[in-house]
Amino acid sequence: MNDLFQTLSLSTSGMQAQATRLRHVSENIANADTPGFRRKTISFETALRGPVDGMVEVGKVRLDQSALVQVFDPDHPLADASGNYEGSNVDLIIEIADAREAQRSYEANLKVFDQARQMSQGLIDLLRR
């Protein structure tokens, strides 16, 4: 029975990590047109401490250090003398792909959670007989 509860904990940590990832992807998409915005990225780490080994933890949020896009618009308030200003380094194609991957990973963890829940319920029903 303890293994089923550990499975529930593992899948829950995976869902929380993917939800955090999806939140950052959403922020990146929302700020794609914000001048000077740098894309946020996160990493996942395996927690080898605590009640269950192998739980997923979200690492630090990092800013993508790739070059910002130079946008030519002499009428923009942030434009320099040459008419350029720094845009964001968010690529919508990458963000949409990351969002889809996070969604699929969340769904996979949800299915594992549901299977473990059904198995524990089945075990409880068997023990009642």
Rank of each mutant, 00 (worst) to 15 (best):
V58D: 10
Q6Y: 12
I93A: 09
A47P: 10
R100L: 04
R39E: 14
T20F: 02
R21C: 07
A97S: 10
Q6W: 11
M1V: 07
F72K: 11
Q65E: 09
A108F: 00
Q18C: 10
T12K: 15
N89T: 06
S120P: 07
I94P: 01
I42M: 15
P35Y: 03
L92C: 08
K111Y: 04
Q70C: 04
V25H: 06
E95N: 07
D73K: 11
L68S: 09
N84G: 04
P74A: 03
A81Y: 02
D98W: 05
F37S: 09
L63V: 07
Q6F: 13
A32P: 01
D53Q: 12
M15R: 15
K111F: 05
V90L: 08
L78K: 08
S43C: 11
I96D: 08
Q70H: 06
A32C: 05
V69G: 02
V112Y: 01
K60I: 03
N28I: 01
V71H: 08
K111S: 13
S105K: 10
M1Y: 08
L8Y: 13
E95G: 10
E45T: 13
K40A: 14
R21W: 03
I124P: 00
A81L: 01
A116M: 10
Q121H: 04
T7V: 14
R129F: 04
F5W: 14
T41V: 13
L8G: 14
N109G: 00
E95T: 05
I94F: 04
E27N: 06
L123M: 09
V61S: 06
S26P: 02
A81M: 02
R104M: 11
A99E: 07
P51C: 03
Q65L: 13
M55P: 04
G36D: 10
L78Q: 07
S88C: 03
Q65T: 07
A19R: 13
D91P: 04
Q103D: 05
V90I: 02
N2F: 15
A102Q: 09
D91I: 11
R21N: 11
V58M: 06
I96H: 13
A116N: 11
N109D: 00
I93S: 08
N109A: 00
T46L: 14
E107V: 01
V69T: 07
I96E: 05
R104Q: 10
N28S: 09
S120H: 10
F37K: 09
H24L: 02
L48Q: 11
N28F: 04
A108T: 04
Y85L: 12
G122H: 04
D73F: 05
T7G: 15
G14T: 00
L22F: 10
D33R: 13
K60Q: 06
F37W: 12
P51K: 00
R104G: 11
S9V: 15
F5N: 13
V69M: 11
V69R: 13
S66E: 12
I29G: 12
F72M: 04
K60Y: 01
Y85N: 07
D3V: 14
E107A: 12
R39L: 12
L126T: 07
N31P: 02
R38C: 03
L126D: 04
E57M: 06
R21V: 04
G36T: 10
L78M: 05
L127Q: 03
Q118P: 02
I96Q: 10
